[in-house]
Design a protein around this nucleic acid. Structure first.
Lengths: 154, 154
DNA sequence: TATTGACCTAAAGTTAGGTTTAGGCTTTAC
DNA sequence: GTAAAGCCTAAACCTAACTTTAGGTCAATA
């Protein structure tokens, strides 16, 4: 069993954040002795999951839902599996987007390296939409191939 | 030249957001005719960069700084290059963190698939910290190897 | 002529995820 | 016995990034 101060140290989270999570219902089964929170191994694992789900883009309210399912027992295994499958897909999509962002950033790094060498952007502007060096063209095209919410058809 | 409504359509962004970006100084050189904003190719590329930098975790204020450097001319090429190098490193780090998140999610998917088959978690709890199947153990270890802000030494 | 649609501004409102403040208990060190 | 540490609550406050509201201009269409 750990106090809130110990858990704060272990996870590098402010005490106020831990209390906030508790108030939001993220530790539905946490014990108390004369008002003082008792973090057990169960709450530590919950905290690991909370950090994971937060980074995966999930909101506190949905995480609360999950923690309640955990408290409800084995009948909610399928719901919990679904949730993790969903978040897995969401993170995979997020990583694809970040790869595109990275391509844009790499392109810009190349671009400004050239601009510094040339002292201006005239040569670059001439190469611009389609006459870049092959490797750079790939980055540029990937970064600029907008996957907009198309209106398409008709 | 495009109107704000056209740009809103093209990028799938609300008009209010475009006006907000303008008010925050993200289009320092945008033209107007009798009060009406004229988005040129320059502003469209700016918008692509804005979306990229935002996804890379940068705040509006910092993006404004960058846009001002662009308006200042060739003397700011080195600053702009630095900024992109920095953001590139930030995104690479973010992707590493997301990979860890993904490992945790994959582990949990496996875990609940097993739990559903077994009907309970007793078998899983016995395997738990170190006796998981090799592939799963990797995921678990990677997800649980906390890179906390250690106090270390002494 | 009047009404519709697309643009404009300034200012107030919203939301999530915390953080801070103010006041209070309880236990251990001097 | 008193004061410093560590715990508690409720409620107010904060920030970023938008969004909404209220009121106004202007051009083209019915």
């Amino acid at each position: 069993m750990y106090t809130i101060g110990q858990v704060s140290q272990m996870f590098g989270l402010p005490i106020s954040t831990l209390r906030y999570y508790d108030k939001e219902g993220l530790f539905p089964e946490m014990a108390r002795t004369s008002g003082i929170r008792q973090f057990s191994e169960k709450e530590l694992e919950a905290l690991r999951i909370i950090e994971c789900l937060k980074k995966s883009g999930m909101e506190i309210k949905q995480i609360k839902q999950f923690m309640q399912w955990c408290a409800e027992g084995s009948s909610t295994y399928p719901k919990r599996l679904d949730l993790f499958l969903q978040q897995k897909a969401a993170v995979e999509q997020e990583m694809e987007k970040l790869q595109k962002v990275l391509d844009m950033l790499c392109f810009k790094c190349w671009y400004y390296t050239q601009a510094i060498q040339d002292g201006n952007e005239t040569r670059l502007e001439q190469m611009l939409p389609h006459h870049l060096p092959p490797e750079i063209q790939k980055l540029y095209d990937n970064a600029h191939d907008t996957d907009q919410p198309e209106s398409s058809a008709s």
